[in-house]
Design a protein around this nucleic acid. Structure first.
Lengths: 209, 209, 209, 209
DNA sequence: AATGAATGAGAGTTCATTCAT
DNA sequence: AATGAATGAACTCTCATTCAT
């Protein structure tokens, strides 16, 4: 956990440091992320960094637990409220778009999620995370899927974890499109088209007949 | 391309070195993989490594092109031959199981595939790979999907690239199960169960009714 | 250019590091000079070195431009002031002795000059140097020679570049005497004798009659 | 000394190996010269090299003693024969041109000479050389100068070693012109012009009056 | 609390030399 | 005698972390 010093910081500075760190972890992945670049970016001294955080792992865990955790919280709570008023197809599209909205605002957090997904379980930071919160960051869609199953809207035969993986892969796919250089072109319509495609598969499966 | 020296090696040694390298790249990802660890693992001298390969990139590209390339080749060709004699559901299960067979033999190669998927396009080794083979390693299922669409068995409305991503995510999912420590328990039945689940989604979509 | 960190150092430490580097470059030449030896000599950590300088080239260029440049500056300016009050023979002796004085203080800088003279023009560091200062370090005596020709004191038929090479070779000769192990014996008288010899050749040529 | 194996080689092969080595030492200097490049150039196996020579030093010493020694021998003997029939000016020009002829045929040997001139006396190979032949390779012109002094044609007041250094510096100067990219233009006339310039200085000194 | 210089282990890579075939 | 794979020390450079100010 970050040291008290970090929480004593004026909020805008705390935010700024966090943002720079998120950006670095997203671009480089956990291990290759460089503290030097983060402090240079943030315009703080190296020593200060170590007065805010125990070490690299401390910073990383803070981001994963706080930032990613909060997005999930938001998406889930928002989602739950609106679930009542839509049919399933609409809702999945809605939440997907909300996701994409968040993704456009903070695509970096998704990068970090995906990095986590690939992490060797033997990686010390991974083990530490696991002790703190069981697998929560790679189950982004899981609570919602479960909720839909409970309500009988998603077929109970569906393997929820598998579906979660699939939906996360769509984020990755989107990220790859987004990063293909056509980023500026990647507007509302592209998102809609993609969601149509997703909707199609999830509604009908892939086969003819 | 590896140097002649490498190809002159007795096969078991060549295999051994390759295996150690694959294992390191799979565990650590391209950038964090350490030549020092590879040679320590393989029990060869650092200097020997550089008699075999130009540099780290050379080794990595060799693995991606040769090892991963060959798996794809095998799976695809084998698959194509058998496509005629099965219905689609059977076939997808078959090819998935063939995949899983290969995956159980060399789960590391999938890790490497996934690492490639996340690689920054500006990464020099990525650019070199792209010049050699256009995007082939992250489109594992694409040719088969396309083939099925052409034959009219997969609905033409299906976004092939998206489906490819989804199927790759299943590999990742499988990898995560496999690596959860229950690896020894992960037998034929688990594979079947998983494929049933996949089949279900791909056949019916996920919704009730 | 060295990083700000280097210039922030207490002067005695900055001097010490520079001295160790000069000594290494002089003894080994640019390419064979070893950063490891320099930091071991200077008693600093490897990492510290790279907080001071971008890389080996950065250090080398700094030495060439600053250390050698300043000697030339001093010798030349001092020389120009005194040119008016002496005949040519006296002046050349004077400037030669001034040179030799500097040479006794920092014989290593001459070694580095001579290394530069032999450097392949394709050597990257050589090209960088050339972009920064056009050929200045291997034309030590050229401006003064030119000045004397302009004033009509050196015969206009003299090939100035050739003479510059000759005078530089005298430095080299002196260096070789200096380094022959008799260094401690190499006093004022030896310098005078050598300058007499030089003066003789430059005054009369070498032939009888 | 090279091993017997080397002398048992057919002459053309022995010559070829020597030539490749000379070329490498000239281009790179003693320390940076690479045995790998030499054997690659010469088209022989690494192991063969070490059956011909004890080590790198052995090869280098062989070249210095044999190749450079023979040139000096030739130039000196040839020179002595012709000294009787010319005046001094003519002779020095002649021998200079003979030198330059040799230089155009084997400029590499001069590079090696100059490398030796710069070598740290503490360099092991330098010490070994010194034990074998006292300073012979950096006194190219010395015997001839001495001979001329003895005959009374060069003024006895001339410091012979200094003059030797000067004349060697002219070789270096020539080498630098030769290597300036105008190598193909560097014909008989350029040599003559340069020798005129040299002759002028040596005849009259550099001063007006 | 803030600073930034100091640290040293470890990265990829090169190369003279050895040795089994 | 000839081969070329094997070796390991040394190279330049990076980075998370510490510590004196």
């Amino acid at each position: 956990m970050p040291k008290q010093t970090f929480f004593n910081l004026p909020e805008h500075k705390r935010e700024h440091v966090t943002r720079c760190a998120v950006s670095e972890f997203a671009r480089q992945g956990y291990k290759q992320a460089s503290i030097s670049r983060i402090v240079a970016d943030a315009g703080i001294a190296k020593g200060s960094f170590y007065q805010y955080f125990e070490d690299k792992d401390d910073l990383f865990m803070h981001i994963v637990l706080t930032e990613i955790g909060s997005i999930k919280q938001t998406a889930f709570e928002e989602g739950r409220d609106q679930l009542a008023q839509m049919n399933l197809s609409q809702f999945l599209r809605h939440i997907a778009k909300a996701q994409l909205e968040a993704f456009r605002e903070q695509p970096e957090l998704f990068s970090i999620s995906l990095d986590l997904l690939r992490m060797a379980p033997s990686e010390p930071v991974y083990e530490k995370l696991m002790q703190t919160v069981e697998g929560a960051y790679n189950t982004f869609f899981l609570p919602i899927i479960q909720h839909e199953i409970d309500k009988g809207r998603i077929n109970a035969k569906v393997n929820a974890r598998m579906l979660n993986y699939m939906l996360m892969s769509i984020n990755q796919y989107q990220l790859s499109l987004f990063n293909s250089g056509e980023a500026s072109d990647y507007g509302e319509e592209a998102v809609d088209a993609l969601m149509d495609d997703l909707d199609f598969i999830l509604s009908s499966g892939i086969y003819n007949q």
